[in-house]
Nucleic acid binder design. Structure first.
Lengths: 340, 340
DNA sequence: GAAAATAAGGAATAGGTTTTCCTCAGGTGA
DNA sequence: TCACCTGAGGAAAACCTATTCCTTATTTTC
């Protein structure tokens, strides 16, 4: 029965309670001006007692700031954008900035609508995140606030995007497999129209070439599904029966690949090693055996994007172009080397 | 090189441009007062031309409202809380309410911190969402704004929570299996300390009892993992070799169960039918065959929670207690009945 | 034709806080 | 004793918008 009156305490009441003027109360609470220590204490005590919280609207109105940013996502806060959001929130929260969230459901109309709304709310910056495919159109040229794209790439020339280093991730996987003594390496991945898929494949073949090795056949482009993983593994095994390792474009694909290998009686990692991509816990842990995989450090991407946004808000010259964040390799059973 | 000066246009400038007073400009833009049509048009044109957007801080300050609510989540915007958030955003967005998001990482200190921050920002209400285990402590008694818990339950007597009808979900699964001619039904689920697990089990046994059937053994409580699904299925098959269907407490468990069944040479659904819980796409679609499963309608839960919050903000008496939202059954291969 | 009603728009106030400028009292130095 | 300075705190402006209350000119009514 919360009969508590929800009366909001203003600084006027604090001032009255402490027997000082409003201006003095403000100075006391903010440590400004010349005041006796006793006066400051009296005001602070009154504020504490009454549960005073300065009205951010009034503060913002005066300061001309809102201490808010907008976060626009297109993939329904999916698996990729969430960690990015968390990282961003981390960086922003530390700076006392709050985040307005909007989900566009990948609908350009809704997106425009939300951008309008955010601007009306006087956000000081906008982070755009989403599912990555091809570079996406800019959310708007010459917006009055800085914009950073995270885990998605804008095709606008003046925009700034932070994305994972897919090429580096592919190279990482390949070098790990080479280092563990496998040289006949195949690749099963997602649709070729995805830039991420192409980059990962390039990274892998590049790393193999550096080491004087050649992949087991061309990369097999398909879908981002387990089903394709199962099919892809079949195709690969038929064409290259002696394959020693399979690098997969996603953990889901890797899981499908693993199933096919097991069903064909091939042991992982003893006969064939498997590397995934994403480090998506439920997939990675549910696989048998648990997958070695590439982590895109999504939180890091979000954090970096947010930091750039903060700098731009602070007046730094706006960055442009694309910043790639290194991936890391997470080792698990699927590439373990048996003590020979 | 957006050298666009980010000068913010105020109504004062609009008024000057239109040759009217500030008050008149305001009336023209808001359709209030008595003004000539020509004047309204002139002001609107000026506002349009200058790109005027009313400052929400000033509006809010005046109206004593902020048109914002806070969304606090504990499970890092996980699989469960995201759809809830989307549903909530739907309901709130329609009412021109914006959402501040906060992730507490399940840390009570952070949570308290965020609640403080939200209150300081003068949100008009708070939605708390999270992973469900046992009822969680209230985020604070006698807060000055209404609070609704979604997909998590508060132990506070005066609080209001919206959660799925787990019992109904369990019953739904059981009745479907009965309807398709299976009576010897086992249950493999998560830890017994989870209220959700207990309710689902109750719902299932209740529905069986209604139909005069008895489950194949006691529910097997374990973990929410595939690994446990594999083990649980082993245990169940050993104790009840003639089991005709297995109802699983989660899709992950169902997936593990399916694997064991397949490895033992049992066909799904011909020999044993499988039903999951969650309707988690990647798990459900990756399973072989795709899983019939119970959907908790998370979006609906979020929407309902948000609607209640809006009503409470609007002055309706605050609801109390727990509101359960019905689950629905999604049919797929794993329970198909062969044309006999 | 005078009084009243109406149309059109201006002036001022409120909202809560911060900051700048001002006042007043007491102390310091010559 | 007087000019000047310093310490302490008050008064008021500013931020931007919406609204209430006025004022002025025009139209209507008898």
């Amino acid at each position: 029965m919360s009969s508590e009156q929800a009366h909001v305490v203003t600084i006027r009441e604090v001032a009255a309670a402490a027997g000082v003027s409003i201006g003095t109360a403000s100075k006391a609470l903010n440590g400004r001006g010349k005041l006796r220590e006793e006066t400051r204490a009296r005001v602070s005590a009154a504020a504490e007692r009454l549960g005073f919280r300065p009205n951010p609207l009034a503060q913002g109105l005066l300061a001309g700031r809102t201490y808010t940013v907008g976060l626009v996502t297109g993939d329904s806060f999916g698996r990729f954008s969430i960690p990015v959001m968390l990282g961003a929130e981390d960086a922003l929260g530390a700076g006392q900035i709050s985040v307005f969230m909007c989900d566009t459901r990948d609908d350009p109309i809704r997106e425009q609508h939300y951008v309008e709304r955010l601007l009306a709310r006087r956000v000081e910056g906008i982070i755009v995140t989403g599912r990555r495919t091809e570079p996406r159109p800019s959310i708007g040229a010459d917006l009055p606030v800085p914009v950073v794209y995270a885990m998605t790439q804008s095709s606008g020339d003046d925009d700034f995007s932070v994305i994972p280093d897919d090429r580096g991730g592919g190279a990482l996987a390949a070098r790990h497999l080479l280092a563990t003594g496998r040289t006949r390496i195949g690749h099963v991945t997602g649709p070729e129209r995805f830039e991420a898929a192409r980059r990962r494949a390039e990274g892998m073949t590049g790393a193999l070439a550096e080491a004087g090795a050649r992949p087991a056949g061309e990369p097999l482009f398909g879908e981002w599904t387990e089903e394709w993983g199962r099919q892809g593994a079949d195709i690969l095994l038929r064409a290259h029966p002696g394959v020693e390792a399979i690098f997969c474009g996603s953990d889901q694909i890797a899981r499908g690949v693993s199933e096919t290998l097991r069903e064909r009686g091939l042991r992982i990692p003893d006969d064939v090693a498997v590397v995934g991509f994403d480090n998506w816990e439920p997939m990675v842990e549910g696989s048998r055996p648990p997958l070695t995989t590439v982590d895109m450090n999504l939180g890091e991407i979000g954090r970096i994007a947010a930091e750039h946004l903060l700098e731009a808000i602070g007046g730094a010259p706006r960055a442009r172009g694309v910043l790639t964040v290194p991936c890391s390799l997470v080792l698990r059973e699927s590439t373990r080397v048996n003590p020979a």
